[in-house]
Simulated scan of single mutants.
Amino acid sequence: MILKSVHICGGIHNNTRKNIKIVNDKIVQISTVGKDVIEYKEGISFPDDVIIYPGLINSHDHLALNTHPILKKRTYNDYIEWSKEDFDKEKKEINSIPFELRCQWGMLKNVIHGFTTVLQHDKWSDAITSEMLDVYTKPRIIHSIEFDRKWKLKALIPYRKKKIIHLAEGKSKKILQEPHELLKYSLFSKQTILVHGISLKAKEAKNFGGLIWCPNSNIHLYDETANVIELKNSLPILFGTDSTVSSDWDLWKHIKQAKALELLSDDELYNSLTVTPSNLFGFTSKGIIEENKLADIVVSRKKDIDSISSFFKQNNEDILLIIKSGEIVLFDEIILEDVISKVSVENFEKIKIGNSIKYLKFPIQKLVQQIRDYYPNFEFDSYFTIH
């Protein structure tokens, strides 16, 4: 498969126009337009200028908690206060839907926004599979100091993979003590990745291995977020979305909001979605467009002269093509003629996002019906419509 005349985001080829050759699940050749020897016969052309970037990495989501909108009645001081709010009706509705179906819906949310890898902060079932998305479940999950009764034991016991914990999620006096409490029991604190860190201080942050920043979720619930402009000098910053019970469905709204906060530079924010989590979690072939790397690829309309600037100006409907491990999993109808010879369109279903028709390799209609069998009031039309 050849992707013709695409402008690369990030890495050594940043902002250059190239042709990309994919064989099986790898990028095997990147060559300059007009100066290469790539065979164009089977290439995909795009009607307008486009950017190409690696499939994004969502470093924090609860995939089974994406069927409902934000649960919020006021602004909270911390996650403990939020957890005590009366959402019994909503929780009953969520739990009425089988776990596997809820996870599939959460996976769909990530894929149609250009994410091809997600870190699941919850239990998981190996029975849930998808060729569209890698769900990473290897880290040791510690929910939080308040709600994980075994957190001290989990923090103490050595573990060859990373440990991930919600920490400093809020601004109350009790929450301010959490980093100190965790450090007392963490023999290998550099293996520990924190989530949220709203009240985390730089002197505390330097003891840990990374921070997963979830600004959209933080601002919805607590009206503030981590001071990553200071914390980024103490530990790596990764980007997370959290689930829709505390954040927006539209993941590009998350990214644009983060950019507007101006706490990270454009390059730092872009890297927090790509190469930084790839390096931190050992995804050696992900997070960058280079030869011999995994062909997890997103192609989107180019909306600015600079590729990185264009990345931050796109909306969900601007995504024209998503490739996962060398296989097309989503494409826009404007490239249907070039794609039709490479995939069996019968395996795709059509959805409309904004004014664009997308073909998605996913049984959406079946999933929606299955969810509605358990929860008849399930709504999603504000996100996309099925055609």
Rank of each mutant, 00 (worst) to 15 (best):
V28F: 07
V339P: 00
D88G: 01
L231E: 12
K4I: 15
F380H: 12
D332V: 08
K163H: 10
F281Q: 04
E85W: 07
P236D: 12
W151L: 13
K163M: 08
I142G: 07
K123L: 15
S265E: 13
K72W: 06
I145G: 04
S5M: 04
E262L: 06
L187C: 10
N207D: 12
A295L: 05
M1I: 12
L251T: 03
R160V: 14
D126M: 01
L280E: 05
G197A: 07
I193G: 13
E327S: 14
D148K: 02
S5A: 11
S186T: 06
P47W: 13
K174G: 15
E291C: 07
N66D: 11
K72F: 10
I371D: 03
G170Q: 02
F362Q: 06
R372N: 10
W213F: 12
S247K: 03
S382G: 02
T284E: 14
A295N: 01
I319Y: 04
S300K: 01
I44R: 01
I145Q: 08
E317L: 02
I322N: 00
S144E: 05
W124N: 15
L153A: 12
D250V: 03
S285V: 04
E181S: 15
D296R: 01
L133T: 10
F46S: 07
V28L: 03
R140S: 13
S186W: 03
N227G: 07
K361C: 06
E349V: 11
E100T: 14
S344F: 09
D266C: 09
Q104F: 14
I12P: 00
G10Q: 03
D267E: 15
R140K: 12
V111K: 01
Q177A: 15
D332T: 09
D250G: 03
S31N: 11
F311M: 11
K293N: 13
G282E: 02
I305G: 08
I212H: 01
K302V: 03
G282S: 08
D373L: 09
E93F: 15
H121P: 00
L264P: 04
N77Q: 13
S144M: 04
L108T: 02
D49A: 06
H387R: 10
I128K: 00
L65Y: 13
D381L: 14
H254L: 05
K256V: 02
V195C: 02
A202L: 10
F380A: 09
I52K: 02
P236W: 07
I128W: 00
K184I: 13
